[in-house]
Amino acid sequence: MSELSDQSVESDSLTPKQRLEPPNSRLINAGIVTIHDMETLRACVAYENANQGRIQILRRLEQQASDIRSQED
């Protein structure tokens, strides 16, 4: 059974760099929409601000934060 768990990768185990700087830029959105908690989202915002500062990415992260907040209500 441990073999199966070793092979599966939870979306929460992705680092901000893996989410925001994939080899294929189309995967950035996928990395953002799979964020389901504010802690991960804040880490991604901090990473983006420190490294790239791309307004479009920060807006996507802001939208995801709104989605997370609305789900918590």
Rank of each mutant, 00 (worst) to 15 (best):
1 M>K: 09
56 Q>V: 14
70 S>L: 06
65 A>P: 03
18 Q>T: 03
68 I>G: 00
57 I>E: 02
33 V>C: 11
40 T>D: 06
44 C>D: 03
67 D>S: 10
36 H>P: 00
15 T>D: 06
22 P>Y: 08
66 S>N: 13
43 A>Q: 10
31 G>F: 06
21 E>P: 02
22 P>E: 11
21 E>L: 11
36 H>L: 04
29 N>C: 11
22 P>Q: 10
43 A>S: 11
39 E>P: 00
16 P>N: 03
48 E>H: 05
18 Q>G: 01
32 I>D: 06
69 R>T: 06
27 L>Y: 12
49 N>H: 07
10 E>A: 14
62 E>I: 02
36 H>V: 10
26 R>M: 15
51 N>G: 00
4 L>A: 11
28 I>H: 08
14 L>R: 04
20 L>C: 09
73 D>F: 00
6 D>R: 05
33 V>N: 11
26 R>C: 13
49 N>T: 07
20 L>E: 07
47 Y>V: 01
11 S>F: 08
14 L>A: 06
33 V>M: 11
44 C>S: 09
5 S>R: 09
22 P>K: 09
46 A>R: 06
16 P>F: 01
50 A>E: 14
60 R>L: 15
70 S>I: 05
71 Q>D: 13
54 R>V: 05
61 L>Y: 09
42 R>N: 14
54 R>D: 13
50 A>H: 02
10 E>F: 10
4 L>Y: 06
13 S>R: 07
8 S>Y: 09
17 K>A: 14
30 A>T: 15
57 I>M: 04
60 R>A: 14
33 V>L: 13
32 I>E: 05
13 S>L: 11
21 E>S: 13
27 L>W: 12
57 I>F: 07
46 A>F: 02
53 G>W: 04
17 K>Q: 13
56 Q>K: 13
27 L>H: 12
21 E>M: 13
68 I>S: 01
33 V>I: 15
20 L>G: 04
22 P>L: 10
59 R>Q: 15
20 L>V: 11
62 E>W: 08
45 V>T: 07
69 R>M: 12
66 S>I: 12
43 A>K: 07
9 V>S: 06
10 E>R: 04
33 V>T: 15
20 L>W: 09
35 I>S: 04
60 R>G: 14
61 L>K: 06
70 S>Y: 06
42 R>F: 05
62 E>F: 12
19 R>C: 07
71 Q>L: 10
64 Q>E: 14
69 R>F: 07
15 T>E: 04
37 D>P: 02
14 L>F: 14
6 D>P: 01
44 C>P: 00
73 D>P: 01
39 E>T: 11
38 M>S: 09
50 A>D: 10
72 E>Q: 12
41 L>R: 05
63 Q>G: 15
20 L>T: 05
27 L>E: 15
70 S>T: 11
53 G>F: 02
10 E>I: 13
38 M>K: 10
45 V>R: 08
72 E>R: 07
56 Q>Y: 08
45 V>H: 01
22 P>G: 10
71 Q>K: 14
42 R>K: 12
29 N>T: 15
11 S>E: 10
26 R>P: 02
69 R>N: 06
72 E>C: 01
31 G>I: 08
7 Q>C: 04
44 C>F: 02
29 N>S: 15
19 R>T: 04
46 A>W: 01
61 L>C: 11
9 V>E: 10
54 R>W: 02
13 S>P: 00
32 I>Q: 06
46 A>Q: 07
41 L>T: 03
35 I>D: 02
14 L>E: 03
